[in-house]
Amino acid sequence: MRIDAETDEALVARAGRGDRTAAGQLILRHSDRVMGVCFRMLGDRAAAEDAAQETFLKLWRNAAKWRPQGAKFSTWLYRVAANTCLDRLRRSGREVQEDAAPEMADESPHAEERLMSADRAAAVNEAIAKLPERQRLAIALCHYQELSNIEAAAVMETTVEAVESLLGRARRTLRRSLAPVRDELMEGGGLK
């Protein structure tokens, strides 16, 4: 059997027996996605790299005893990544509590100036970073990682309805916060 045709679960089992090739394959398959979740949650590349590395370290430590128990491996890995990020946010005191974030537009004069410097991605990232952590995670999983609401609910250990609610509030907040710069973003990204 070719290694790239193996399931994640089979690779984890082999990695748990010390198979370095299987571990490397898991890294190739999932490190970008884990990095993506961590970056959305922490908003900083260096911090995201540390969190992604810690996520995989937890994987290696648990690989030998990991059992599917009905959950996909990727769901479990995303959950570990999300919890790792939430722990880091809480330790650093940077977390934004649910209901604590104002759903207000960023109408400061600096908003458009930032776009003038062509740092459109930074403007979007900043808007995402201002979301409460659960809303941010919902956006990271459903939009950027393309998980279904059902999969996201499994990762977040909540209900589908809760995920839909989080997404709805996140979208509303993002629409408002990005409204002043929407046209520039659309033009700058060639989206019009």
Partner: peptide, 28 residues
């Protein structure tokens, strides 16, 4: 909104990070 969000792609893990992950595996 989805189109706007796509403007901000997350960075990839990169080879250096992947190498650190594999090194962690060896240590474990």
């Amino acid at each position: 909104l989805s189109q706007i969000l796509d403007v901000a792609a997350a960075p990839a893990a990169g080879e250096a990070l992947q190498a650190r992950m594999l090194s962690d595996f060896d240590r474990v």
